[in-house]
Amino acid sequence: MTERRGHLAEMARDEDSPELNHLFAEGRERHYSPGEHLITEGERTDYFYDILSGTVALARNGRDGRRQILAFMSARQILGASSTPSYPNLATALTPVSAVCYPRAALERALVTTPKFASNFRVVLTQILESAHDHVYTIGQRSAVERLASFLLYLRANQARFSTGGPREKSEHIELPMTRLDIADFLGLTIETVSRAFSALKKGNVIAFRDSHSCEILRIDRIRELGGRDDFTQHRGSA
């Protein structure tokens, strides 16, 4: 039997069907360098990706050239599931990324013939929708510092929800593999405003930087106060 890897394998645990076996047999592991695209806007939605490691920015470009980052995706997340014949978004590796690429047609056949697998897959799609709602919340009617605080809560929940080894408890250590420009394009701010917001949180001893790609939340109560909520949802379990 073909080795099953990644989050899709978790969803299919203890399940077996010819269509499911064909799906995993068709999976191909691919590796991407920072700046390389996994998918591009307008490309046919013939494949989808199960991210094994690294961070991917899912974005959409406007006619005026401005970019809106829609999500930061990492291990144990599914990229490219679409109801349209072509991808409306662009997915770019921010760090070295490994992902298993599967044919969309093989996935659809496996979903039809393996009900439990299909049920687990729907849960994952619901989580993607909920993460999109979280993003809308981070940029809605809030100041720059408040958006950034909400963003740190968003990352804190997602890093626990989608950690490589499976869901874990939340931590005050926040990985920041994206650039300040990426954060600005996610929050709908300028890079200068994002830098000032980080400086304000650091000056207030709310966060501290250990290096250029991570920070520590020193006062989670203050981050929650600024973010306007206790936390974002964290799903437990394998699916």
Rank of each mutant, 00 (worst) to 15 (best):
S150Q: 08
Y154T: 01
S163F: 03
E175M: 07
P103A: 11
V145Y: 00
P167K: 13
D185K: 10
I174C: 10
T164E: 04
P103I: 08
E192K: 15
L94C: 08
I128K: 15
V97C: 06
R180H: 12
V123F: 11
T193K: 14
H133P: 03
R180G: 03
L90D: 03
S98M: 01
A144M: 02
R196H: 15
P115Q: 05
R104K: 13
A118C: 11
T138E: 03
L181D: 03
L155P: 01
R104T: 06
L148C: 09
L176F: 00
A93T: 02
K116L: 14
H173D: 03
F121T: 03
L201Q: 11
S171Q: 15
S163C: 12
V112N: 12
Q127T: 13
L187G: 13
A105G: 00
F121S: 01
A106Q: 09
A157V: 07
M178G: 04
K202G: 08
A197G: 13
R109V: 05
A91T: 01
I78V: 15
R142S: 09
P85G: 03
A91I: 06
T113W: 00
G140P: 03
P88K: 10
L129H: 13
A118L: 06
L107Y: 00
S83T: 12
Y154V: 05
Y154I: 01
I128V: 14
A110M: 02
E192W: 12
P177S: 14
S131H: 14
L90E: 03
L181K: 15
F121Q: 04
A91Y: 02
Q127N: 13
R156E: 04
I174G: 11
S119P: 06
I128C: 09
A160N: 05
A93E: 00
A106H: 13
H173M: 09
L94P: 02
Q159I: 05
R147I: 01
L189P: 05
I174N: 12
P177D: 07
R147A: 03
T84E: 05
H173A: 14
A200M: 06
F117N: 02
L125R: 14
M178Y: 11
A160T: 10
L176E: 05
T193L: 01
F198M: 09
S163V: 04
S119V: 10
I139P: 07
L125S: 13
R161D: 13
G140I: 04
G80Y: 04
I183K: 05
I174Y: 04
L187V: 10
A132L: 12
S143A: 10
Y137H: 11
H133K: 14
L152V: 11
R196E: 09
A144K: 12
